[in-house]
């Protein structure tokens, strides 16, 4: 019990660390995922191939391997001096984007083909059709799987703790290394994760209900 009260600042930093890494990589994954899903359904074959390759590569690579690439290859070759936070966000965001892409694509596939045909028939371009007609109708289907993906992301963010980021997992390791009772530490860490994951599922449930009303 005392381990929490005695180390409140550390726990707070860890919590905020997990929260910010999760939020940043979720935002990145969402933007990239929708973009790549657009690529995968586009009429231009090279874009489709790129989208397929993106998903195949990132979805099938172990997350830890992506972290290794992000931390030991990216700074060496491309951008030296990138912060650990940035690198972790990139690794998590890219990895999660492949799952977001597939969720969005499955949503796109639930919208009847006739909707796209009607949009094209009145002269809309592919982008207009996707943005104004298809994606808004796909959203309802995409929300539930997206919620699962972001909860998984929250828990995946623990890997960032092993790569010099201050977050919950990192704090738990720090404190257990100092010899505090591991049971209590894990309990508080688990509760902190629950706060974030419950918030995510609550947020998405709200979103789902609002979309239902808006038909």
């Amino acid at each position: 019990m005392n381990v929490l009260l005695d180390h409140l600042p550390e726990f707070r930093d860890g919590f905020l660390g997990t929260l910010s890494i999760t939020a940043a990589s979720a935002a990145l994954a969402l933007v990239l995922g929708i973009l790549i899903a657009g690529f995968r359904v586009s009429p231009i074959p090279p874009l489709r191939a790129f989208g397929t390759g993106w998903v195949m590569l990132l979805r099938n690579t172990p997350l830890t391997l992506l972290f290794l690439v992000a931390f030991f290859v990216v700074p060496q070759i491309l951008f030296p001096g990138t912060s650990p936070f940035m690198l972790a966000t990139l690794a998590l965001g890219f990895y999660t984007s492949s799952f977001v892409c597939e969720a969005v694509r499955s949503g796109i596939n639930t919208v009847p083909l006739g909707q796209a045909e009607a949009a094209r028939s009145i002269g809309m371009t592919f982008l207009q059709t996707l943005r104004l007609i298809i994606l808004p109708q796909a959203t309802r289907t995409v929300v539930p799987p997206l919620s699962s993906i972001f909860i998984a992301l929250t828990k995946n963010s623990a890997v960032a703790g092993a790569f010099s980021n201050t977050e919950l997992f990192n704090i738990s390791k720090l404190l257990s290394d100092r010899g505090f009772a591991i049971g209590w530490i894990f309990l508080w860490i688990a509760l902190a994760y629950l706060i974030i994951t419950f918030a995510i599922s609550g947020l998405f449930r709200l979103l789902e209900r609002r979309l239902e009303v808006a038909r």
Binding site: Q115, S121, I122, G123, Q137
Partner: peptide, 18 residues
Amino acid sequence: RLRADVGMVFQSFNLFAH
């Protein structure tokens, strides 16, 4: 642009549902 000049009416209406 050309399609905008050609009106199309489908068997299944295909009105934008949202």
